[in-house]
Each structure stands twice: as C-alpha cells, then as structure tokens.
Design a binder for these strands. Structure first.
Lengths: 107, 107
DNA sequence: CCGAATCCAGCGAGATACTG
DNA sequence: CAGTATCTCGCTGGATTCGG
C-alpha cells in the first residue's frame, strides 16, 4: 500500500509542483519560475502524470497567446499537510544537529 | 526548503522503513522481511542514511549471534502522520477513479 | 546475523533544439 | 506561451559474493 501511494508524489519536482500550487492556480511558466532548476520537459511530464493521477486539474483557455492553468484537486489539497509535516521535520533536524542541506531559495 | 526536507525520506524504500518502524523497534532481518523486494545492500544503505539524518537510532546488542535493533527517533515519529496522509490520498484516488496500483501485500 | 564490496544495467533527468 | 523531440549521461538500485 505505502509504496503505491507514494507514487502519487513520485518523480523529480513533483512535490515542488504541488507546493507551488497550494496557494491557488498557476500557469506553466509561473511554475517554471517557481522551480528554477526544472526543465520544460520534466515539468511537462510531471504535470501530465499528476493530472492523470487526479492530483491536479488542467484548464486550457482558448486565448492568444495560449494560456493554461493548473490547480490542485480536493485530493491534491490533502497532500499539503503531509508535505508541511515533512518540512517541519526537516527544519527541526536542521536546527537540532546542523544537518547540511543544499542551498535552496524557495520556501 | 521543500526540496532539502524531502531528502529526509529520499531513496528507495526509505518510506517503507519508516513505516515498518512505526509500531516499535525492529531488527535488520525483520525489516528485510517486512519489505520483501529490498536487497540487503539497499536496506543497509538506507538505514545508515536515515540514522545519520537523525530519523532513527541503531542499537547494537553484543550478543552472539549479533543483534541490531532500529527504532525511530522522536523526529522520525513525526513523519508517520505525513506518510499516513499520503496513504489516505492514495486510497481515495484508488477508489474514486480506479487508478491502477501494482499489487502489494504490505499494509 | 548483519552487513560491506564489487559489478553492472536501466531509467529518468538534464541539455538542447524545435513547433503550433 | 506551452509544450515536444532526441540524445546523452549519471546515479541508484539489483544481484552476487565475501567477511566479522
């Protein structure tokens, strides 16, 4: 069970995508800006995976230039507290024993 | 921040190890039995990583044959609710839209 | 029983370039 | 703007073997 369920947030930058969407819908290039090291290819792959898993929704607006918005589903929103809990533990580990993390500007 | 904190549960079978230890201390081969597909090498690697990160403790008992127990630290225990939340979402996705998971005997 | 050492293969991520 | 198409490369995990 655990292993399969973990697939929901598997893949590079998947947690970051969910994290970036926690405050509301965002567009492709906004997400790309939120997560500088991610490439278009990988971001695109992750978004389509997360969509097919029911974590997020994709809205295409027939404007010119094209505009696509992504937002979390109700189920996707339920992942936020989980990620927050992990971040909490990470923080405490950092403080308690000076565990070295790499630099990362994003909250 | 998120990215570094996620490192705490990174690596194959790391979440499973934490999951298996949630009910109390377990020995190396018990963990290996709990997580059939994991190899000794990887389990060993993961345990030492998780130990160095402060997620779990390693107790060596000077018996013969050797006996080593692993148990979660307080910080490690804080990860349990996070994993449970993810499992909850996984379950709901499975039910709501018949998303196909692979077979897995473990709870 | 609990690992460490070695070797190897695969997959997935990164870079780059291109399109509607 | 929002992706897709290739290609390469490196890491990580699997299998196996050996040791305290």
């Amino acid at each position: 069970m655990l292993t399969e369920c973990m697939q929901v947030i598997a893949g590079a930058w998947a947690p970051n995508v969910i994290w970036s969407l926690r405050a509301g819908p965002r567009r492709f290039n906004e997400l790309k800006s939120d997560i500088p090291p991610v490439s278009s290819k990988v971001l695109s792959a992750r978004l389509s995976e997360l969509e097919s898993r029911g974590v997020l929704l994709r809205h295409v607006r027939p404007t010119s230039p094209p505009s696509v918005e992504y937002e979390l589903t109700d189920l996707g929103l339920e992942l936020i507290p989980a990620l927050e809990a992990i971040v909490q533990v990470g923080h405490k580990l950092k403080q308690l024993q000076g565990y070295q993390f790499e630099q990362d500007a994003a909250e």
